[in-house]
Amino acid sequence: MTGLVTSTARRRSYSVLAVVLALLWAFPVYWMINSSLLPYNRIRGAEPTFWPLDGGFDAYGRAFDSGFFAALRVSAMVTAVTIGVALLFAFFAALAVSRFRFRGRTSFIITVLVVQMIPVEGLFISQYKMLEGWQLLNSVAGLSLLYIATVVPFTIWLLRGFIAGVPFELEEAALVDGCTRIQAFFRVTLPLLAPGLAASGVFGFVQAWNEFALALVVMSRPENRTLPLWLRTFTEANRADDWAGIMAGSVLIAVPVLIFFLFVQRRMASGLVTGAVKG
């Protein structure tokens, strides 16, 4: 667009600026990886070491030996339960919202959108009291319940766009060809929705894997820590002397998310701003 009227020299200097900004923005991520590979004497030198040329993976061993796997187990369970349940429930609801017209449909959508915005700190006190009463503090079930409720609204919104994007006529055509309604859905619609379900699954994964505030409130016992809580404790314990270990811990938590995120970022951005596909 405006590019049409940008002169070549200008475009070149803007491009240089963009690359500089890119380096600046990526620097913290690079620094995390770089620091995690450096030995003690390097990381605490008078001058920072910018390339991990004589680096190694010792710091990762120290992170592994400090309870990383116990936290990984808890995080994996919470994440799996959250994704499974939230995806199923949200899928049903999204189907209802995008395939049927019914009384209360618009108010349901609006409620979903508003609920999605409720900040953790607006409810976590009473959610804590509730789980305490139900004997669900320090349990995977308790934390997962809260996570499912935070993930479901946006997932409905995201899936609604995808389902609306599959033409209803396709299903009708299958009906005409002799499929039952259920068959038509499973053989025609569901395969077309696979990318949407994958994107929603990744969204749930990122939420459950990264969440800190609710985990802090619900999981107070050390043996029930999720990964973010573990990283916090690990940082506190080693702040004075082992930043390489701390950075290794950060890398371990970040890597799965960075990989998944690259696949679905487009969907997440457009889902928030425009509701994925108009329906």
């Binding site: 800190f212 973010p228 916090r232 970040a254 960075l258």
Partner: peptide, 10 residues
């Protein structure tokens, strides 16, 4: 994208 995707704790 990297900055966006990083877990907050990390």
């Amino acid at each position: 994208l990297l900055a966006w995707a990083m877990p907050h704790l990390a």
